[in-house]
Write a protein that binds this DNA or RNA. Structure first.
Lengths: 147, 147
DNA sequence: CAAGATTTGGCAATGGTTTTCATCTCAGAC
DNA sequence: GTCTGAGATGAAAACCATTGCCAAATCTTG
């Protein structure tokens, strides 16, 4: 209350061994975003929102989130890493709009099956896959028909 | 006509408008590699092989090769760009060994179909996809069973 | 052989990500 | 409440792949 509100409501997340305000803030920001963001953008957002947090911590936390399975990661065409909160335990794939940047999760059951089959027929083990889909969403297609 | 021919001994490749020794060297090195390489590694290889060529030229040529459809590109987990010669016109997908780095092309017909279907059902247009498969190849699995 | 245009490649600049390390914070002990 | 040590933070520097810049080298044509 009157003291520094360390804001530790209910289920705190201890990503690096100890739950901290910064980690909770980053996770919350990622959840609110509901879409892929770069560490840089997320940092800028938090700063301009008045939250004092270092870029290093953002990177550390995001990396920990990915390792903990709480976030998905992908790379945009320029090689920048993007992160997105992942509610469930199983990994997802997304279709991302090249114009507005929005992304929607897609059903990837077929891909999973396909990947498994490839693994079997090739003799490879521990096969992991990354699928990145990009396109122009309906809205953006209408806005610029003659792209 | 040996005169009108734009200096093409045996099918020279003119990526930037004019066929040059460096461009041919880079392309040949990429073909010989038969697998994904980074620009840096390709450069190191050529240098240690006695070929004098600048890193800048490697990048320029590789980029041109990709644009010309003669090379595939992907990013390794660290975000570095990798290039691989592509004999055919249609694009391929590869399964890459995380241990030895070798990669093999895989049949991706199902993925193509899947991607198209996603595009249709989502309302997105101009959907492009990138698929990256990694695993441990049979040889490496035997070498280190308890990985 | 000279003029003009294109390519090359060393070097500096860019920019995202990681490392370093001194400082700060919190949980538990006293 | 205070002390204390392990762990977390973050500003700045280090990294490193990639790109931009531009003078020198090379090829084409007249």
């Amino acid at each position: 209350m009157t003291s520094t509100d360390t804001t530790s409501p209910q289920g705190e997340v201890a990503l690096l061994g100890r739950p901290t305000r910064q980690q909770a803030t980053v996770l919350q920001a990622l959840i609110d975003r509901e879409d892929f963001v770069s560490a840089q953008v997320l940092h800028a957002r938090l700063i301009s929102a008045g939250t004092r947090v270092g870029l290093t911590t953002i990177y550390r936390t995001l990396t920990a989130l990915v390792e903990a399975g709480l976030a998905d990661t992908m790379r945009d065409p320029e090689g920048e890493r993007l992160f997105r909160h992942q509610p469930g335990p199983d990994h997802r794939h997304y279709l991302r709009c090249r114009t507005c940047g929005r992304s929607v999760p897609v059903d990837s059951g077929l891909v999973e099956t396909w990947a498994d089959r490839i693994a079997t027929s090739s003799g490879f083990t521990q096969v992991a896959h990354t699928v990145e889909l990009t396109g122009i969403c309906a809205d953006c297609t209408q806005s610029a028909p003659t792209a």
